[in-house]
Write a protein that binds this DNA or RNA. Sequence first.
RNA 1: GUGAGUGUAGCUCAGUUGGUUAGAGCAUCUGGUUGUGGUCCAGAGGGUCGUGGGUUCAAAUCCCAUCACUCACCCCA
Length: 439
Amino acid sequence: MAENTFRSPKGVHDILPKDHEYHTYIKKVIRHRARQAGFRRITTPMFENTRVFAQSIGETSDIVSKEMYTFADKKGRSLTLKPEGTAGVVRSFIQHGMNKLPQPVLLYYIEPHFRYDRPQKGRYRQFWQFGFEIIGESDPALDAQIIQLSHKVNEDLGIDGILTLQLNTIGLPESRTEYMQVLQDFYAGKERSLCETCLNRLDKNPLRLLDCKEEDCQILAKLAPDMRDYIDKESLAYHEELLSYLDEMEIEYTENKKIIRGLDYYTKTVFEFWDRETGAQNAIGGGGRYDGLIEQMGGQNTPAVGYAAGIERIIANMKREKIRVPSKDDLHVFVAQLGKEAKKKCLVLIDELREEGIKAMGALGKGSIGVQLKMADKFNVPYAILIGLTEVREKTAIIRDMQKGTQETLPINKVPARLVKMIGENNLDKYSPGELLYS
RNA sequence: GUGAGUGUAGCUCAGUUGGUUAGAGCAUCUGGUUGUGGUCCAGAGGGUCGUGGGUUCAAAUCCCAUCACUCACCCCA
C-alpha cells in the first residue's frame, strides 16, 4: 500500500458484506431472545461526559486508567467514547427517572464500543458489544435469568458447547473492603516475592494479586486467606440460592474464585463465559450484579444485574467451529434484456418482482445476452429472466432455470406470480410497510 | 504499556549465496461467441516489493528507523 493511500486507523476494521451476514444474524438472535424475555432496546450516546465512566467503572480500573478515548470538545468539556455499556445505561436510567417505571426495568443494547488497547485477535479499538440489564430488583432468580438468557443466545449461535460458565461471588463492598485489608496485611512483609505489577496493585486493588500469572505470586496467592471466609453471610446465601436455580435449569457452571472482574461496580454475583480451550484469553462475555452503582451515580438505592458480550469474538468462535449463517443477501433472479424497449419493460418488471419479495437485479447497462448471463452466473442466481425484441413484441418473457438450463416463455404479466411459486413463499424477502398505526 | 514474528498484484504465495525488464495460481476485464452463462482457448490490466533512510557498481534480498498486521504478556468484549 503506497504512502499516499488511506488505511483505517490502527485497531479498527471495516465490516465487509460477508461479515455482515454474521452481524445481522447475531443481532437478530439477540433481539429475538431479548424481546421474548420482555427486554426493551435502549441506545445511549456514543460518548458521555468522562465522569460517567470514571466514577462508575473505577479510576484504578484498566479501562479508565489507560484504555479510554477521552477528548475535549470545543468548549473544553471532557468527553469519552463509551468503553462499555452499563455506565451509560445507568446514567440514562437515572436521568429519565426510570425508577418510576414498573420495576424491574429490563433493557438491552447492541452498539459499538471503544477502548484504546493493543489490538489482537478478537480485541479491537472499536468493537460491537451487546448487553442485557435488569434494574430495580434484587433476587438470585434475576441473576439466574440473566445467565439463562446469555446461555440461550450462546446456544442459538451454536457456540454454547465450546464455552464454560465461570461463576463467583465477590460479596458486598463492605465485606470486600475488609477482605482487601486482610489481603494487604497478608502480603505485608512479603513484597520481595511479588512481581512489579502486583506491587503497584497491592495498594489500590489487592484482589488482582490473586489473579497474577507470575509463579511466585501464584504460590503466595494459594496461601492467601480465602475470600469466601470474609464475604458477608447474606451474599453467600444469595450465591447458594443462585446455584440452586442454575442446577434447576440444568445450566452447567464452574465455581471460579479468581473471577473478580475489572470493573469496580460489581457486587455479589460475577460471571464470565470462557472458551473451553483457550480459557480466559478468549472470554466472549461476562457480567454480574451491581447493586451499588445507581446510588453511587446519584440515583436512588437500586439493585441491578447485567451481562455483556463481544460480537466480534462470537464471530471468531463461530468461524473456528465452522458455523455458517444463512445469507439473506443472495439474489433470486437476474433480469437480462436486449434493446431499449426491452429495458423499459424490465424496469417495470423488476419493480413488480421486488414488491413480491423477489430479490431482483438487472444489468441495465449495455451488453450482449451472453455477457448478461455471465453476470447472472457471477451473482449466483437460481433464475434469470430474458426479454428481447421478440418478447417485447409478443408481450412475453423467458424464465431460465440457471442450474438446469431449461427455459419457459410466458406472458410478461404472469412472470411475478410464476417466480413466487418457483422460489417458494418462505424464501421471499417480503417487506410490508402497511403496519403504520394512526391515532 | 512490554516482548517476539511477519509485510512482494484484489486474495494465496514463489523469488536461490545481493546481479538485467519481479513471477505463478485464483480473481478482474477483453476477445473467440452482437439472442443464451458455467467448460475451454487467446489476450489485457493491475507492483515505486509497507514507508523512509543507509551500505553497495548493483537491494524485494543486508543494516537502521518507522508504520501496520499477527502472536504472547497484561487486561478484558
